[in-house]
Amino acid sequence: MRNSFLRSFVAIMLILVGAALVLSNIGIIDFNMNNAWIYIYPVLFIIFGLKWMLDKIRYQGGSWIFGSFFFIFGSLLLFDRFELIEFTFNDVYKLWPLLIVYIGFSFIGNSQKRSKWNIKWDKKWSKRNKVKGNYDSSFFSIGEHEFNQPNWKVEPMNLKSMAGDFYLDFSKAFIPEKEIPITINSLAGDVHILIPENIEFRVDASVKAGEIDIAGRKAEGINRHLMHETVDYETAIKKLDILLDLKAGSIRVVTV
């Protein structure tokens, strides 16, 4: 994978340098090998930003937050080089509002009205959330949460994050024969969960702005909410009880 990315990166750089030299020769831009670096490093930011975002889409690591920041930063620098706007490296501080964009989503709209069945579930969730999980995180944290090591043991979780992504692969996990509560709460990020077909589970998922996909059932937009319960959940001994609450982002639960 790294070798493939390196080859693609070198190829893109050669194409861009060659194109810039052609544009310079016909008088569209002022470009020579002496000032090439001022064009190259913005392109580097854009490429690495795109790679992080594509890796996130493919669930191969990556990060929406850092990927989008470097993509935007590099693009603005490149626009400056072509004299479309004025933006230098020292103007990076002007991008600070990006840090609060996701938080702003938390103020969008009011919660959807729920059915009586949902209210019954809410009472259960409120009681359950008072129980501290074996895996806990601070709500003020930013970053990735990954549970995908071979034979990792599933315990009650209470994961919180201001901004970050969550990846839980239960197909690689050791799941005890009991009902295991799992809570994920974040202002902004993506949640991707893989669950084996032989494991019963129940999911209550909400996003203020974003999309939800649970075993093929989808909802997207503002104030979205989906609940899903497998057929034999109530009678199963081994099962996962999952609560997901995002202000902005996407939720995807897939059976494998």
Rank of each mutant, 00 (worst) to 15 (best):
I28K: 03
I242P: 03
W121V: 11
D213Q: 10
W117S: 15
I72M: 12
L23S: 11
R128K: 15
W121Q: 15
K56M: 12
Y233I: 03
K239A: 05
S161L: 10
D245T: 11
N35R: 06
D169A: 05
H225P: 06
T88W: 10
E155F: 04
S111F: 11
Y102S: 13
F69L: 12
A215L: 12
K238V: 04
K56I: 06
S250D: 14
D136T: 14
L84N: 02
N198M: 00
L6G: 04
G18Q: 08
G27L: 04
D80S: 14
F139G: 10
A188C: 06
N198Y: 07
T235W: 10
S161K: 05
K132R: 13
H145C: 08
G74E: 07
S68R: 00
L23I: 08
E229C: 02
N151L: 02
D241P: 11
N129Q: 13
D80K: 06
D245H: 11
R202C: 06
K172C: 02
R7S: 10
A11R: 09
I195D: 02
F82D: 01
E211F: 05
S250M: 04
F48D: 00
F5N: 01
K247R: 03
N134G: 04
I237V: 09
T88H: 13
N25A: 05
K218E: 15
V43Q: 12
F105W: 01
L187D: 02
K208V: 11
K153I: 14
Y167R: 14
A19F: 11
V131S: 03
Y59G: 07
L77A: 07
E234H: 11
I12E: 05
V231M: 11
A205F: 01
N118V: 13
N158I: 03
N185G: 05
W96H: 03
K56H: 12
I251C: 08
A36E: 08
E86N: 14
D213S: 15
E179V: 11
N198W: 03
I47A: 12
N34K: 14
D169Y: 00
L44P: 06
N148W: 01
I184M: 15
G133P: 09
L240V: 08
W37D: 02
V10S: 11
L16H: 04
M162Y: 05
R7W: 09
R252D: 13
K94N: 04
I65N: 06
W96K: 00
G143H: 03
V22A: 04
K218W: 09
F82N: 00
W121H: 13
L243V: 04
I214N: 11
V154S: 00
L240Q: 04
P97I: 02
D190F: 06
W37P: 04
I222L: 15
G143L: 02
M33W: 14
L78R: 09
F87P: 08
